[in-house]
Design a protein around this nucleic acid. Structure first.
Lengths: 333, 333
DNA sequence: GATATAAATGTAAGCGCTTACATTTTATGT
DNA sequence: ACATAAAATGTAAGCGCTTACATTTATATC
């Protein structure tokens, strides 16, 4: 591979001049620029980005840590992020944390040791303290889907409380009074928030929250199925089921059908996240929209603005969930 | 950040020695190794991977190009790949090609200019010639889901012909004789192959292939819906529909239901790929399994073996599809 | 046209590592 | 104890760029 040195020789200029035409282009005569450019194309020169990084102390790479690379939730998020960055010549290095404290920490270390200029973190298991300490370090980062008051300006979140509220409110408005709830793991903030939104709506409608109708799942499909079975077999009746995410709702639907329950006639269900397959389940699942792609985009913009000093669209940190109505809920008489 | 130089000073050894303990560890006394190690931890030293790359001419990064970051197909593939690599201290740089020739080429250029040691390519639009030329270059790559005879040993593929054959054979065995087919875009090799598998099965059962019952889609959900509508409105009857992937099958199912067709009683459907949501659609979709995660894994192993000289499990290039039977198909009398 | 000023270009010192080669230390055999 | 080979360590030259600073060249001012 040709180096800058050969280009400079062929063009009859110095290294610095070649470097200048590669970069900001400031203070170079058109004529020398042309000489250099044609030398470059003649040699098929392409800058060595590693050497650039070392010399400039900027790797032009941003680290992206998600819980899983697969699954309906992260794909759109990554898509939005990659798109924004590649246009800017930045590249994204991905890692998966698998919702495990140790693996998340390792992944962050890994990304930092890779000289990422900035990090986009969707972490779940790592502690607030860890992140606060990390924020003192020299690698800037944004947090997706996590709120830490000390780091507020770098948290891009969904208003989960409001989302939980919207779901329950809609169910209540449809006349349901006996409502079961399958939550996420309650050590996770978003699971808590969605549940408190639920309680808030209940309170507003003067309905008591019934602990017996709560099942704590883990956001995975199976726990939805298990949760439903357990609730179904308890003495408590319910005509509507709220699930803290779509995966669990799907599991619950399968389980309900196995119990001989007709959907949606005998049981109304609502999920959360609006992952793309909710349209395909039967009956099509009502849910709460989580604009994860937009939020990924915003995270990318945050980095562009805070790390690379690019001017971007205005940064927004709190996103609003929206109710998506499909056929999985019926009016209760 | 501490550099190797400070470590060497604190440990009272030379740069080279520090470098040695970081690397192969060969020819270093235990005692000096310990001195160096403790100096490292004392300083919180972490090697600068950019400098390492420049000096060693190896970036420890591999580029991964997929068509989309989202969608049910690529997630599992990326997951398998990332997993394999991070264990080995390699990182993966991702890019999306969006099935567009120009964007795919750009992405490849980008990845190469990023000094990736190797590439895993899932490309669709780029020509064979381009790839053959690329193979003459210095960056090694594997191809996922694409076969080019000149590059056979670096193609990791599914036997799509056999997959198409299996699907059709099963439908035929269920007694169906009037079978519609929604294909992928026929400029894509996999779409062609699946269709020829279909024809092969037909022939084996002495059924003529009816051009009128073929619709060429684009592997996306909408085209499945459109395809179904068109086939439904044509004068030709059919009791079974084979779709070249699950997305189109899903679209066709929605469309069939809108046309008032009861599934699976009035129409049997089979898809292809076995993406995870096929279990959730209604009725659960029979399909052909595409072991994309394993194939991603294998691609990673290929790189490990061919680029990094690691010994890995034996490399396999052709994977076998399997029939997955669910409830979307009934026997035809 | 001489001088001051600005613009364009060149020079050379790093960025933080690896590694060929040189040198020193240690082990081995007699 | 000494020569010799082997092992451990040190020296220094890069890897391909960027950039502060120095120098040269063009432009403006009177």
């Amino acid at each position: 591979m040709a180096t800058i040195y050969e280009v400079s020789k062929l063009a009859g200029v110095s290294l610095a001049t070649v470097s200048r035409v590669m970069n900001n282009n400031v203070n170079v005569t058109d004529i020398t620029r042309k000489k250099v450019m044609s030398a470059m194309t003649e040699l098929g020169y392409r800058p060595n980005s590693i050497a650039q990084s070392l010399a400039s102390n900027c790797s032009n790479s941003v680290g992206l840590l998600v819980s899983e690379l697969s699954g309906p939730f992260y794909g759109p998020m990554m898509g939005g992020i990659e798109n924004t960055f590649r246009d800017q010549g930045k590249h994204v290095i991905i890692a998966a944390g698998h919702s495990d404290k140790k693996r998340e920490e390792q992944a962050i270390e890994f990304l930092i040791s890779r000289n990422c200029d900035g990090l986009i973190l969707h972490v779940e298991a790592v502690t607030d303290e860890y992140l606060i300490k990390l924020s003192k370090g020299k690698t800037p980062f944004v947090l997706l889907n996590r709120y830490i008051s000390e780091l507020a300006e770098r948290c891009i979140i969904l208003d989960n409380v409001h989302g939980g509220y919207l779901a329950t409110k809609y169910i209540l408005e449809q006349g349901h009074t006996d409502i079961a709830y399958i939550s996420g793991p309650l050590w996770k903030k978003d699971a808590q928030d969605r549940l408190s939104g639920h309680k808030k709506a209940l309170q507003e409608f003067n309905h008591a929250f019934d602990e017996q109708l709560l099942y704590e799942g883990d956001f995975m499909e199976n726990s939805g199925a298990q949760g439903y079975t357990q609730l179904h077999n308890s003495p408590h009746q319910f005509t509507a089921l709220i699930c803290a995410n779509d995966e669990m709702a799907t599991g619950a639907m399968a389980s309900a059908r196995e119990c001989g329950v007709t959907l949606p006639n005998e049981l109304s269900i609502i999920g959360f996240d609006n992952v793309f397959f909710t349209r395909h389940v039967y009956p099509p699942l009502s849910t709460i929209n989580y604009p994860i792609d937009e939020m990924g985009n915003m995270a990318a913009n945050w980095i562009l603005s805070n790390v690379y000093q690019k001017t971007t669209a205005e940064l927004q940190t709190v996103f609003k969930p929206e109710l998506i109505i499909r056929q999985s809920i019926i009016k209760h008489q």
